[in-house]
Simulated scan of single mutants.
Amino acid sequence: MFIANPPKLLLIAQSARMLVQLAVQAGYSAVVIDCFADQDTRQLALASIQVDSLALADLQPALAKLRAEHQCAYLIYGSGFEQHPLSLAYLEQHWRVLGNNAAVFTALQDKATFSRQLADLQIPHSPCRFSAPAGQNWLFKPRYGQGGVGIRRTDSAVDLPAEQGYWQRYLPGKPMSLSFIAAAGQFRPLGLNRQWCQSVAGEDFLFAGIANGGHLPDSQYRQLLNSLTRLLTIYPLQGLGSLDFIQMNRQCYVLEINPRIPASAQLYDPQIFNWHVQACLHGTLIELTANFTPKAYQIIYARQTVQIPHNLHWPAWTHDLPASGAIIGKGQPICSIIASGETTRQAQSRLRQQQKIIENLLNTGR
């Protein structure tokens, strides 16, 4: 049963636009804490506070202010807590969090243990090493990274600080993800997604976009679902999440689980936020249909430092909009775009057209 009178929510993320948009579409009102305070975030939220980071010292004054001014029954977190587990634990102590608890979230950031669990469960995966491996075709990944920031190609000749990250075998296949919703040891798949990255400002693996409508042969899909079923026996996931993997040589190689509402959530049914709340609040899952509108989402990064023109008229399909006059540094996100179509291929084609429009807008100011 869905909540009859949706309560006010507190939403916290590095960038909270997607969360607040999903919440408002589902009938909720929300107050927001994030690091960007984008135009559309502030327009959708009842109140919005910008913080320098999600570190506890930065969050506490904002939390105190919102607690004094708003009565929020529940809290939902999004991106950015990978480097701030103490903040997540604090939130859990003071609010009813609708999402994975801090223990599960932190456990999934323990790459060494997660890699061992994959091996013990005989789940195909990309091998990880925690000291410099011999040979080539390895990636060095930050221990608490997100969005592909800091990932670099490497080999054994490169001196990298092991305490700051780990090495994972590079697999030259198709990056994909499985969006799902979980509760009480079970899950429902929402759909398969194709992902892509971009090379900008010295970063070679920045997360750039995602499209729904991904496809796998039946045998590989069943294998993937079986892998997630086994992982749920160890990690009691709640709510929306995604399983990242590489499809290569007729096999799916698991990379990681994202234990929070993923970027792909905005590509599915508008009721998806209610499904998340129901799963977390009541521990129940609804039967999902396979129907969806083909959609694709992309982040537009600055290839050089740009200043946002004043009074710029952003098209309706743009999101995460910076303030007029804001200066966006090279390699930083400018905005995001979403396109739909009769097919996923058409949606991605429209994304490319939209990107050209945005580039022209930024160059001409109109």
Rank of each mutant, 00 (worst) to 15 (best):
P6A: 05
V32C: 01
I33R: 00
F36V: 04
Q39C: 04
D40Q: 01
A45L: 00
A45P: 02
I49C: 03
A57M: 08
D58I: 01
L108S: 06
R116D: 12
Q122E: 11
I123E: 02
A132R: 15
F140R: 07
G150N: 06
L160V: 10
G165F: 13
Y166F: 13
Q168E: 10
M176N: 05
S177C: 06
V200Q: 02
F205A: 01
G209S: 04
Y221G: 04
Y221N: 09
R222C: 09
S227R: 02
L228C: 02
Y235W: 05
M248S: 14
C252I: 02
E256Q: 13
I261H: 01
A263Q: 01
D269N: 15
D269Y: 10
W275H: 14
Q278F: 04
H282W: 07
G283N: 11
L288E: 09
Y301C: 00
I308T: 02
P315Y: 07
T318M: 01
L321D: 03
S324R: 05
G325S: 05
G331S: 04
I334Y: 00
I334S: 00
S336M: 01
I338N: 03
E342N: 15
T343C: 10
S349M: 12
R350P: 07
Q353I: 08
K356M: 08
N360D: 11
N363S: 12
T364D: 12
T364V: 10
